[in-house]
């Protein structure tokens, strides 16, 4: 048992993740053709606008489900919403935010764009601390809006007129997933400007702009879109009860910053915070690159409930970062 743990601790988890992501990408983006159905509570971007999708992003269900009048919201349909949320949470807590790092096809797509950038040898950019703090709020704004707008379509807030039904599923209208997911199965029908009226025009143009930003942004910034993803914000509310966890033992930390400098999301607190045990913050996607980059024994641990399944070790660190070219040196 101890030897198995040692083997895992010294493994190249990132490589495993790359393969896992390919598998998950195929299952979610093309699984529909194979008759796979993972339901409409998926805690990742499985986009129903694509005919090949094997599941449906839970945000779609939230937006449609909330298109309700107050009376029914507090009735049986409200109850149905709650059971829906319950199903989503059950799905989510098993893998926690690893849904983003290992499963979400749009996360994977961005990682591939990063690989493309590396192929060309362009440097990546990072937000400075102040922008990081400001920009991270955007995903919560998206989340609040995608809850409030459907409600405002069926109800009047403070005597204001109801929002037009053209705003139905507002986030989907601007989500780059809606345009890109069909593209992945060769369907270009989502690339359009809807000239029906002003609202549809604005929303469909925004959708196209965000699609362009998705490609350009993620070319220069790792996981560019994840930083603004309302799914990430929704998930984080339930992250604390996650089965899969990432914990930190601050006593073992030297604050060398290796973890934060390899972090695709650019999270600084993983290195600087030596008090919190739970290392998962809202932007974390649980890719566990930080654990791989930590040379301090047992400083960062990946846990299932309370059992360690992957820990930082100095042996593992030097195997991954240090000694691959040792053979050359001894020849010299």
């Amino acid at each position: 048992m101890k030897r198995i743990k040692q083997y895992i601790d010294q493994a190249n988890l990132s490589r495993f993740r790359t393969y896992f992501q390919i598998l998950a990408f195929v299952v979610i983006v093309y699984g529909g053709y194979l008759g796979i159905n993972i339901g409409d509570k998926t805690p990742a971007f499985a986009c129903p606008y694509s005919p090949g999708s094997s599941g449906t992003c839970y945000l779609v269900a939230v937006q449609h489900g909330l298109h309700l009048e107050w009376s029914s919201l507090f009735g049986f349909r409200g109850l149905a919403l709650l059971t829906g949320l319950g199903t989503f949470v059950l799905f989510f807590v098993v893998f926690n935010k690893a849904w983003c790092g290992f499963v979400c096809p749009f996360g994977t797509l961005q990682d591939w764009i990063t690989k493309l950038r590396k192929f060309f040898g362009f440097r990546f950019s990072r937000y400075d601390e102040a922008s990081f703090k400001k920009l991270k709020i955007i995903k919560y704004v998206f989340l609040v809006l995608l809850i409030l707008i459907p409600l405002a379509m069926s109800n009047s807030f403070f005597g204001l007129p109801k929002v037009s039904d053209d705003m139905s599923a507002p986030f989907c209208q601007i989500c780059p997933g809606r345009t890109i997911a069909p593209l992945l199965v060769g369907d270009t029908s989502e690339i359009f400007v809807d000239f029906t009226n002003k609202t549809t025009m604005v929303m469909s143009v925004l959708g196209l702009i965000f699609t362009a930003l998705f490609f350009v942004g993620s070319f220069f910034k790792k996981r560019f879109f994840c930083f603004f993803c309302p799914m990430s914000a929704l998930q984080y509310m339930f992250s604390k009860v996650g089965v899969l966890r990432l914990t930190k033992n601050g006593d073992n930390c030297t604050r060398c910053g290796n973890c934060s400098r390899v972090c695709d999301m650019g999270i600084a607190s993983i290195a600087d915070d030596i008090v919190s045990t739970n290392a998962v913050v809202d932007d974390c996607m649980m890719c566990f690159k930080c654990v791989e980059a930590c040379p301090e024994p047992d400083c960062l641990d990946v846990k299932v409930f309370k059992g360690n399944i992957f820990s930082s070790t100095s042996e593992g660190f030097f195997k991954r970062y240090g000694e691959s070219e040792l053979a050359d040196q001894s020849k010299k």
Binding site: G121, F124, T254, R261, V262, K289, A293, F317, Y321
Partner: peptide
């Protein structure tokens, strides 16, 4: 004791 972790093996990182 302290050691380097590089994310992208280019001069810029």
């Amino acid at each position: 004791t302290d050691s380097i972790a590089v994310d992208e093996w280019f001069l810029y990182d």
